[in-house]
Simulated assay, not measured.
Amino acid sequence: MSSYRTTSPQDLGSAEARRSSRSFLVFLAWIGAELAAYAALILVASDTAPRNCGGLCFSPRGTLILLGMMFGLFVLVGQLIIGLLLTTAFTRRRMTSLAAGSAAFFTTLVLSALVITGLAITQR
């Protein structure tokens, strides 16, 4: 008897689903690293407000938290949606899980940086 086993379409579909889920887990790990870096930045930032401030004054930590609530949450949701679509597309191109998840994260990182820069320029 031969030990050669033919692959069925169900096996190929389940293998692709496993690779896609692993790619998305790699993408989520990169998002977790991004959030951890932002949390570390908030913890390191000074919590003292500027002196002789006559109006509404925020400390650097308060400014980072305010910007995170106003813009960061929307950017993060956009990054997750686009990252899910890109991870699926990269996985279909037969990329490895690490390559697909990393490529999706860095593509969304560049896209979100371009959007934020564009918004900052138009508000000027």
Score class of each variant (00 low, 15 high):
Met1Asp: 07
Ser3Asp: 12
Tyr4Arg: 11
Tyr4Gly: 03
Tyr4Trp: 10
Arg5Asn: 11
Thr6Trp: 00
Ser8Arg: 07
Ser8Lys: 07
Gly13Ile: 10
Ser14Met: 14
Ala15His: 11
Glu16Cys: 08
Arg19Pro: 01
Ser20Ala: 15
Ser20Tyr: 14
Ser20Asp: 04
Ser21Arg: 14
Ser21Lys: 10
Arg22Asp: 12
Arg22Lys: 00
Ser23Val: 05
Phe24Tyr: 09
Val26Met: 04
Phe27Asn: 04
Phe27Ser: 04
Leu28Tyr: 04
Ala29Phe: 15
Ala29Arg: 12
Ala29Glu: 09
Trp30Gly: 05
Gly32Ile: 07
Ala33Lys: 06
Glu34Ser: 15
Glu34Phe: 15
Glu34Tyr: 15
Leu35Tyr: 08
Leu35Thr: 05
Ala36Trp: 09
Ala37Tyr: 06
Tyr38Ile: 13
Ala39Tyr: 12
Leu41Pro: 01
Ile42Arg: 15
Ala45Asp: 01
Ser46Arg: 12
Asp47His: 13
Thr48Ser: 11
Thr48His: 10
Ala49Tyr: 03
Pro50Ala: 06
Arg51Asp: 15
Asn52Phe: 11
Asn52Leu: 12
Cys53Gln: 12
Cys53Met: 05
Gly55Ile: 03
Gly55His: 04
Gly55Ala: 09
Leu56Trp: 13
Phe58Gln: 08
Phe58Lys: 06
Pro60Ala: 10
Arg61Cys: 04
Arg61Ser: 10
Thr63Gln: 00
Leu64Cys: 05
Leu64Ala: 15
Ile65Met: 07
Ile65Cys: 02
Leu66Asn: 05
Leu67Ala: 08
Met69Asp: 08
Met69Tyr: 00
Phe71Gln: 06
Gly72Leu: 02
Gly72Ser: 02
Leu73Arg: 00
Leu73Asn: 04
Phe74Gln: 01
Phe74Ile: 03
Phe74Lys: 00
Val75Asn: 02
Leu76Asn: 03
Val77His: 02
Gln79Tyr: 02
Leu80Ile: 06
Ile81Tyr: 09
Ile82Leu: 14
Ile82Pro: 01
Ile82Gln: 07
Leu84Gln: 13
Leu85Trp: 13
Leu85Cys: 10
Leu86Thr: 05
Leu86Asp: 01
Leu86Cys: 07
Thr88Glu: 14
Ala89Glu: 11
Thr91Asp: 08
Thr91Pro: 03
Arg92Gly: 09
Arg94Tyr: 03
Arg94Lys: 00
Arg94Pro: 02
Thr96Ile: 00
Leu98Ser: 09
Leu98Trp: 09
Ala99Tyr: 00
Ala99Asp: 01
Ala100Thr: 04
Ala100Glu: 04
Ala103Met: 12
Ala103Lys: 06
Ala104Ser: 12
Ala104Val: 04
Phe106Tyr: 08
Thr107Arg: 00
Val110Arg: 04
Leu114Tyr: 11
Leu114Cys: 13
Leu114Asn: 09
Val115Lys: 06
Val115Tyr: 13
Thr117Val: 02
Leu119Ile: 06
Ala120Ile: 11
Ala120Ser: 10
Ile121Glu: 14
Ile121Lys: 11
Gln123Asp: 04
Arg124Gly: 00
